[in-house]
Design a binder for these strands. Sequence first.
DNA 1: CTGTTAGCGCCTTCAC
DNA 2: GTGAAGGCGCTAACAG
Lengths: 329, 329
Amino acid sequence: MPGQRRRPTTHDVAKAAGVSAATVSYVLNDTPGRRIGAETRDRVTAAADALGYRPQLAGRTLRMGRSNVVALILPEWPIGTGLSAVLEGLARELSPYGYSLALVPTSAAEHVVAHVAQSLAPAAIIVFDPEEAPERVPHHVPLMIGIADMPGTFAGARYNFQKRMAAMQINYLVDRGHTRIGYARSNNEHLRLFVTARAEGAMTAAAERGIPDLVFFDMNAALDDATAALRYFQAQGLTAIAAYNDETALPLIGAAQRNAIRVPEDIAIIGLDGMPSGEFSFPALTTIHQDSAVMTKQWTEHVMALIDDQPTPSLEMMGLAELIERESV
Amino acid sequence: MPGQRRRPTTHDVAKAAGVSAATVSYVLNDTPGRRIGAETRDRVTAAADALGYRPQLAGRTLRMGRSNVVALILPEWPIGTGLSAVLEGLARELSPYGYSLALVPTSAAEHVVAHVAQSLAPAAIIVFDPEEAPERVPHHVPLMIGIADMPGTFAGARYNFQKRMAAMQINYLVDRGHTRIGYARSNNEHLRLFVTARAEGAMTAAAERGIPDLVFFDMNAALDDATAALRYFQAQGLTAIAAYNDETALPLIGAAQRNAIRVPEDIAIIGLDGMPSGEFSFPALTTIHQDSAVMTKQWTEHVMALIDDQPTPSLEMMGLAELIERESV
DNA sequence: CTGTTAGCGCCTTCAC
DNA sequence: GTGAAGGCGCTAACAG
């Protein structure tokens, strides 16, 4: 019966190949500065293969003082934030480099980051909430921080990037002739950092385009709030709304429809995210799409550079966000 | 400078507390069958606290032959499957038990499950694709398998549960007086297991209600496919459609609107999932909501029971799925 | 009730 | 080019 035997170790492989355990390690790790005879090498790999040998990470971690795990501190964001795409994407991207992603909820311990740094000995830690971050991080564990403009920050989560996406919304509306513009913010407290960043970006962009008085409204993603928002914006004589994200924009479109407000004729609406369902609303939602695949690839390269102590690649924001023109503007 | 020192170990704590390393282990782990003097215990906890000691998991794992990681083999499902909610939920639920969730993409290795079982020595492995599963799993690593009706299977992913949800759709439609019913299947190959299960459930339920000829249509989640589906279903004289999920239902609603087909008057539509955006479509989508919070809680209890070698709790399907009556039926 | 010891699997320095 | 030995941090068996 397979799977009952003790897991094979380097020694088992060594014995089977007729060499020492050290040689096995050299061969399987391609240790630099160690030249092993081709014939020996073959014997070792063959034996390892035959036994189904896989290095046990715990041993390696203990020896090295560092695991090949990248820990991600789960932020308390609501689902549908694109967080899921990030999680899956990172896990997949990290894998070919030999790293795996461990999810650790913020609630796991008092000082999560410090705790994780010690107990998991991760190769790197990814944390989105900057408040978690500056704690004393023992040892030399690279840290990536979301939503802040500092070294070791992901492109897609940078404060500046959030601002630029919101600016894209405003600029598109202005390009289409709108001058009286409103901005619908999300009420969600967990999203505050993003909301602040985007609202600021929208305001700056508006000002640059000669619109000093961007009108704000705070709402939940629900029909009644959306109806109130619409009434408010229309009372202000606005002709266009930029929404914090698609989840905020979609109820606005739904509310418009229910109140016989025509979109975009009476009021134009632009979202941000590129959620699939935005394609099927009526009218279909014009929005800014964030390419999470490109994003997670960038993040991974960033993390890998930090781990290898190499200069981090420049934060290229091209291609991360893209306008999707549909019907709502 | 904090964080430059070597991470504190049991020996450091032992020295600080004036006891041996073993005693530290006993105290901090509350080792059963070991009675430690209250005074000693206090000295140890105080010292551990003062040093900011956290057990290094690698050492424990090596010693125990088992880590406190639960590995989840990432299925190749498209995003928006509710997979994200599962990932986050599991991570959060597992945490209080002292376990963390590691994400491993299917592509990580040839025989992922076997590989992970050996290299990570996880406390349990969660794998959704049954094709990955039956490989020889070395050692005694409990395995949970999705979308199959066998012991060690999650309630929310069971074949039978999928069928029951689809049956709920059909029964609701029949209860509302519909007798000519269509079923819109997703074309997505990665979803085939779910699609098959749900379609089967719908068919069985329909037959039980005296509808032997459920009409199927395969489509992608896109407007043109949805339009074709609508045409097809209407040509068959149907009055109601059950959709594989909300992501399939939403384009149907969008297409109806664009083609002046009234929902539910001309044709009723019911989804499955309870995606937030279903609330804002026009008409709002009637659907079956899967409570992922309840689900992940159940899964966690299941995994924990398996790990502790206790009888697994019965699979309670109550409360997992719930009808949300809105406007589209 | 507490301390000593040994060893989990791996990698690396040193000797050959 | 290869082997032997030690130790990373932790816990379980064994002494005291």
